[in-house]
Amino acid sequence: MRRLLKPIKDVGIVGYGAYVPMFRIKNEEIGRVWGVNGFPIQEKSVNNLDEDAITIGIEAARNALKRARINPREIRALWFGTESKPYAVKPSATVIAEAIGATPDLDAADFEFACKAGTEALQAAIGFVGSGMAKYAMAIGADTSQGRPGDHLEFTASAGGAAYIVGEKTSETLAYFEGSYSYVTDTPDFWRRQHEHYPRHGNRFTGEPAYFHQIVSAAKGLMEELDYSPSDFDYAVFHQPNVKFPLTVAKILGIPKEKVLPGLLSGIIGNTYSGATLVGISAVLDIAKPGDRILWVSFGSGAGSDAFSLIVQDAIEEKRELAPKTMDYVNRKKYLDYALYAKHRGKYIM
């Protein structure tokens, strides 16, 4: 059975853009409040009071458009992956589509699959364009993630996102997809019920059977189908709920740390959930050379992984300069104490 996902037409990325809010809180500061020491990461990004997944998506989408240099009206689908939808019912994608001037001749929807909603949207965009149905489709992953105060998750759940515009492969394509592969099982390692403020998770159960099993299976499945070995890749970006997990995946797969670190931002921005690998890939695209091959594997609790193989093209050199780079956002930072962090996260009852 052929397991590789590959559309009829060759497709690739014509524009990408990331966004990370400027506020940070150090793990130490969260630890001070809850009496915890020993931290998964150094610091994480925090949304401003006026930011949510939609506004993050808008800025990422605008950056992607600047690089794509296309008329937004040519985007025929805008799919937004998030698990922090500002509305439980009412699409977020429509707000973004309106804000970037893509309305009204397009399809739009919100995708949810815990942290892989962004790559799930990307898979759909690849299919939409690759089938010939549409010239361009945009996939966005963005979150202002929730973590229960005092829970492990609070140390990493952060805010950020990135957007990708998929189009048929041409010289304007800055990186194209060789193929992709999705691996899904019903593994409830993390969830949030309707009307609940915070997710629940299975603690150590989220590791081996969930995160590691799905990511490794997806990565191996993709490599088998493309007949590649880990050494064929110049960069690898894995879902990054912390720093340790993706590095462990690299070790399991036999990929050297150096190929993972350029796209591993969780130590300094945290886990942007649906945005996590999308932001990591945008950081890699900011520095990759034409011809580089990138392995991209997301993970979403519940559970599943999407794996992609990307080849960087010449257009990257010029296009990466057309919008702020990922590190421009990462390096722009202002620290919050826990009191202000709580205000930014809407924790005060007025």
């Binding site: 401003n48 009071l49 006026d50 930011e51 949510d52 939609i54 506004t55 808008i58 800025e59 500002p86 509305y87 707000v95 804000a99 702020p324 421009d328 956002y329 722009r332």
Partner: peptide, 24 residues
């Protein structure tokens, strides 16, 4: 930039609009 300008209670709509910030 486009940001949230106003929210109406828990069950109301969210209004987005232009704001300005120092360039990136």
């Amino acid at each position: 930039v486009t940001r949230k300008v106003r929210e109406f209670e828990e069950d109301g709509i969210i209004l987005y609009g232009y704001k300005f910030r120092p360039p990136i």
